[in-house]
């Protein structure tokens, strides 16, 4: 009797494949979790810093018009609202710089990509330390500006 008779070739109940779909779209350097969100934050902070830089080059250029014109422009920075803006700027630059160093380590350090998640945690911790170091100084300056001591 031939081994593959018509009977054995007939459709049989197929065993379910044992391969499970991934629980979530994650686990690579770029998709989901720390890898992706670090990239999203890097873009948002980068664009914010870029538009500030455009304004900042223009406002600094007023120094070439006259001393009083420059002083009038820079006095706009010595207000509580702009003080909060400066704090936001430092927060954005702090993240962009630290995560930028993380990107360099991922790209050039032989085991950087393997430890990208740990590097991200280190970035966040250093970021918190940086902001904690700067924020009290800046907030005390904001309070001085708000209480009528506009210049030192």
């Amino acid at each position: 009797m031939p081994e593959n008779s018509a009977g054995t070739l007939a459709p049989q109940p197929v065993a379910k494949p044992k391969i499970k779909p991934p629980r979530r779209l994650a686990g690579t350097l770029y998709r989901g979790r720390e890898g992706m969100w670090s990239w999203v934050l890097h873009r948002i902070t980068g664009v914010s810093i870029y538009f500030f830089l455009l304004v900042h080059i223009l406002d600094t250029s007023v120094v070439r018009i006259s001393p009083q014109a420059y002083n009038a422009v820079i006095d706009q920075y010595k207000t509580p609202i702009m003080g909060l803006g400066e704090l936001a700027l430092v927060i954005a630059i702090g993240y962009h710089a630290l995560n930028g160093l993380r990107i360099i380590l991922i790209d050039f350090w032989s085991v950087g990509a393997r430890h990208q998640r740990l590097l991200f945690i280190i970035v966040i911790l250093l970021w918190i330390v940086l902001v904690a170091g700067f924020a009290p100084r800046q907030i005390s300056n904001i309070i001085l500006e708000a209480t009528g001591h506009p210049s030192a």
Partner: peptide, 26 residues
Amino acid sequence: GLFLVVLIFGHLFVNLASGAGVREID
């Protein structure tokens, strides 16, 4: 990026963090 880490944090420290912060700039 490596250069900017030094250049920007130096710039921020002198103009924004040290002394009276932005209030001493004129």
